[in-house]
C-alpha cells in the first residue's frame, strides 16, 4: 500500500514538472528515455486516445476515415525535429495561440472540462514520447 502510494506520488511529481522549452522546441525527452515508435503508431491511429485522424490524414492507407482540418502527417519527421514535434504535441498554443490542435500535455486554460476528463492531460509523458518517436519515422 505504502509502496503504491509512493509510486503514485512519484509519477504525479514527474508528470507535473514543466518541460523545458527552447525556442520552437522541447529538446529533451519528457521521461528521460526515448519513446517506442510502434506504440506511438497505435496511439496516433486510436480514435479515442490520439484522436489525430479526426483532423489529420497520414500515410495510413488502411484507415478509412481521415480528417482534412490539418496538414497531412506524412513527412512530419522530415519537416520537424524531435524537439519541434515534442513542443507541437505538448502545447501547440506556444507556436500558434489560435491553433485548433489540442495541447496533449497541458491542462492550462481549459474551461468547462467534462467531469470524466477534469485535470487530466490527453496523453501521458510516456505516450507523448511514443508519438514523437513514431512521427520522427514519417520521413516522406
Amino acid at each position: 500500500m505504502r509502496a503504491f502510494l509512493l509510486g503514485a506520488l512519484l509519477l504525479g511529481g514527474a508528470a507535473a514538472a514543466q518541460p523545458m522549452v527552447a525556442g520552437d522546441a522541447i529538446p529533451g525527452s519528457l521521461t528521460g528515455a526515448p519513446g517506442d515508435a510502434a506504440r506511438g503508431r497505435a496511439i496516433v491511429l486510436d480514435r479515442q486516445r490520439g484522436l489525430c485522424l479526426l483532423c489529420h490524414a497520414g500515410p495510413f492507407p488502411e484507415e478509412r476515415f481521415q480528417g482534412d482540418l490539418a496538414p497531412s502527417l506524412a513527412g512530419a519527421g522530415a519537416r520537424l525535429s524531435e524537439g519541434q514535434l515534442r513542443l507541437r504535441m505538448v502545447d501547440g498554443r506556444r507556436l500558434n495561440p489560435d491553433t485548433i490542435m489540442p495541447a496533449y500535455f497541458s491542462t492550462e486554460g481549459l474551461r468547462h472540462v467534462g467531469r470524466a476528463w477534469q485535470d487530466r492531460r490527453l496523453l501521458t509523458a510516456e505516450e507523448i514520447e511514443d508519438v514523437v518517436a513514431f512521427l520522427a519515422t514519417l520521413r516522406d
Binding site: Q66, G67, L69
Partner: peptide
C-alpha cells in the same frame, strides 16, 4: 465562440471556420 472542454474547441472553430471539411469521416 467560447473554447471549451479537454479538446479546447469552440462551436465556431468547427461550424464557422471549418464547415465543409472532414472531421475524420
Amino acid at each position: 465562440r467560447e473554447r471549451r472542454g479537454q479538446l479546447n474547441l469552440s462551436c465556431a472553430q468547427c461550424h464557422d471556420d471549418n464547415a465543409g471539411r472532414r472531421l475524420a469521416g
